[in-house]
Design a protein around this nucleic acid. Structure first.
Lengths: 243, 243
DNA sequence: ATGCAGAAATTGGTTGGACCATTGAACCAC
DNA sequence: GTGGTTCAATGGTCCAACCAATTTCTGCAT
């Protein structure tokens, strides 16, 4: 039984709009930040209603591909191409402590693997870039007494990029964005991140030495300290609740 | 400089619609398959335009939360609750060999961590369940000469579940669905999966013995064999192309 | 009664046109 | 320059109608 005679498309207006838009983006070589045509112009050119255009753009907006600014225009937020696969994940129960802990476990998994891959694949340029971020982070850590979350994040991003697999950065970035509040105001634990600090350099050294197993191990240690901090924070919170 | 005056929200119609809809779903205790009110009714009740309702529903449809059937109605496809986190991922270049390889690297990361967590947390019941799936898989492997991909998948799912973190199953399931075609017709490699077969039992043994590091190591070995098979398949493909 | 074909109602999909709210640029007064 | 003002462009919302797929009802033939 040949299961696939793909069902014919009698109507698929908005999908067609998106396909046309992909073509346009390729044609014009638009990258992130690029501005795409007005809804009204799109509607006119594609011979569809502006509402249909809007539904299509709403889909892309929901996927984080595009940002609409009223009064200004619609802008690309990511690179789009025809061979994209969309994997929308909706995670139930993510706002509480348990949910945060669960995403941390995912991050631990990805962080370890990314570090290991990075140790295998990073070239001289990537290693230098990571070291640069590391230096910046350590400097910020010294001068601002531990508040280096932004620089810390950049260090990790550099590692993800050097892993040669953009999925790591995409997935972790999505989670990072979701928990922005938390990662910025870490539950009142004053020295949040202090414990994890030294591991950044050990991870880097393993990467520079092309030692994947070592990098994996150090990344696991780092995430363990972060999880400990978080647990301490939760305990604090429970304490101060009782006050 | 106090960087944060968070931008004020003057309008957010469609988000409000979705919030109301979440409330409705909870109120009516709707689960997957449940039918939610007509667009026209929603528009009337919520005192917004039907267009606005449609934009909101389009978002949910894009996230896979809902399915719209013309002439019939709009139906829930997944459980929704107020504490949901949406993490839409778009994988650039996912159709080719490289893309498949990249998702495999993600899976390797998650598989290893899930196995390790499972070794720590699985109770007697979970271990028994995993062993049951393992037995079924091995039986299928014997009788059907290696075609046991379905049973194999169930074994892994059991491990994810026993990890105590539903995110593992959700993320990997999303990827699995995307690459269903590939994983079923593995590039013409006849004995795809043969090499990985024995590791399933070694993983189980580590889990049963509550040995997280061992489980992690065995899972990594398993994924390594899968990646090797895939590379071999790609090589095959290139060869047969030349014919 | 039963079964089934066709009509009618229901529901999501699309259209066109109108107006509102925000933005950004051009312009002007000080 | 600085700070308003005006104005055009753009996304956001609304309305009313119609189209297309689906479901439900109806009535006729059996």
């Amino acid at each position: 039984m040949t299961d696939f005679l793909p069902p014919i498309q009698t109507t698929a207006r908005d999908d067609a709009v998106l396909k046309a838009l992909v073509g346009f983006v390729r044609q014009e070589a638009l990258g992130p930040g690029g501005k795409l045509p007005t809804e009204r112009i799109l509607a006119e050119r594609l011979k569809v209603s502006r509402n249909t255009v809007r539904e299509a753009l709403t889909r892309w907006e929901g996927l984080g591909l595009v940002e609409r600014r009223q009064g200004s225009g619609t802008y690309l937020k990511a690179a789009v191409s025809s061979d994209m696969l969309h994997m929308p994940l909706t995670l139930a129960g993510g706002n509480d402590f348990t949910g945060l802990m669960r995403t941390l476990e995912i991050r631990r998994a990805l962080e370890a693997e990314a570090a290991a891959l990075c140790a295998v694949r990073a070239g001289k340029a990537e290693i230098a870039e990571i070291e640069r971020k590391l230096d910046i982070m350590e400097e910020a850590f010294r001068t601002r007494a531990g508040m280096s979350s932004e620089e810390d994040w950049e260090f990790h991003q550099a590692v993800y990029r050097a892993s040669g697999n953009p999925l790591f950065e995409q997935i972790i970035a999505a989670m990072h964005e979701l928990f922005h509040r938390f990662w910025e105001h870490p539950l009142g634990v004053r020295d949040f991140g202090h414990a994890s600090f030294p591991y950044h350099r050990t991870i880097f050294e393993c990467i520079a030495a092309h030692d994947p197993d070592g990098a994996r191990a150090e990344a696991l240690k780092l995430m363990a300290t972060v999880e400990d901090d978080l647990k301490r924070g939760a305990a604090n919170l429970k304490l101060s609740d009782r006050k």
